[in-house]
């Protein structure tokens, strides 16, 4: 066993604060490049104009240090804590929430979290709580990934408990149907995360984690890579296009994550992400 390494949770707070701000100001390079590349292939003049606006928008946000999109999202944190790490100085989750509080305050980010969702829907005023997914991994590092997830695209996501007999065809139809019904609402071009297998809570997490991949990357399993290609082609044949105004570029990419499931089940989930695909990782 390795020596125990101490990490003060104050470092976690500082890292999360910085992640909140930079993730919202700087569009990841893979998405930026994909938007530029799509300008070359998009056939619709309106679609090309929208893509040009999105590239210019990312340039302005980075230069002026302002958010790419006014919906600066719900802060979703994936934390991987090495089993040789000893977290000191306070409560780990409280330290993450504090980082979100400071980042959304100091970064002039919009506070978009409401408590008592069924009734009062009062704004919590500091964008907390964060959504935290922690896993324990080998090693002595703490890796923090922030995804700033906007409401417009999240609202278009879907979960289906299919019958095993529906097979891949059923899954593929459900993905295409989700994107089709979403139309212009999730600010296309979108990025599609698909989870297949597991249980009801795990399949949605798979779909969300799938969105952490780089746009343009190929799945290491050729079988899954082929499934992704097929879905991307079908989704881009819908004609929805940039902002739903008609065109070829409905999605920039489709990512699938799968795991075994119960012999009686076939859970599948689609997590829709907008072109404002904001995520970033740091290691402490």
């Amino acid at each position: 066993m390795g020596a125990i390494r101490e990490v003060d949770v104050a470092e976690v707070t500082a890292a999360v604060k910085d992640l909140c701000i930079t993730t919202n100001y700087d569009l990841p390079a893979d998405v930026y490049d994909a938007l530029k590349a799509a300008q070359e292939t998009e056939e619709s003049p309106v679609g090309r104009e929208v893509l040009a606006q999105l590239v210019e928008n990312a340039d302005i946000a980075a230069a002026d240090r302002v958010p790419i999109c006014q919906d600066t999202g719900f802060a979703v944190i994936f934390a991987e804590v090495g089993q040789d790490v000893h977290l000191t100085g306070g409560d780990f989750e409280a330290a993450i929430h504090e980082g979100v509080r400071r980042g959304y305050g100091d970064g002039y980010l919009r506070k978009s979290v409401a408590e008592e969702p069924a009734h009062a829907r009062r704004n919590t005023t500091d964008n907390t709580p964060a959504i935290i997914h922690t896993s324990i991994v080998p090693g002595d590092k703490v890796t923090l990934t922030l995804m700033a997830k906007g409401g417009g695209a999240e609202n278009m996501s879907s979960l289906s408990m299919l019958k095993p007999s529906q097979g891949w065809a059923g899954i593929a139809d459900a993905v295409v149907d989700t994107v089709s019904r979403a139309g212009s609402n999730p600010c296309p071009p979108v990025i599609i995360g698909v989870g297949i297998g597991g249980t009801i809570e795990m399949v949605t997490l798979l779909a969300k984690k799938a969105l952490l991949r780089d746009v343009g990357s190929t799945h290491p399993d050729p079988r899954i890579a082929a499934m992704e290609d097929e879905l991307l082609e079908r989704v881009n044949a819908l004609g929805i296009g940039p902002q739903g105004l008609g065109g070829r570029t409905t999605a920039l990419d489709v990512f699938i994550e799968e795991m075994p499931c119960h012999i009686a089940s076939m859970p599948m989930a689609v997590n829709v992400q907008c072109h404002a695909q904001r995520h970033k990782t740091v290691t402490l």
């Binding site: 928008n57 302005i60 946000a61 790419i68 999109c69 006014q70 417009g152 600010c187 902002q243």
Partner: peptide, 13 residues
């Protein structure tokens, strides 16, 4: 009218 969703920095100008 549709304005471009996710172009908030550009539209603010």
């Amino acid at each position: 009218f549709a304005a471009t969703g996710g172009a908030g920095a550009l539209l603010a100008r």
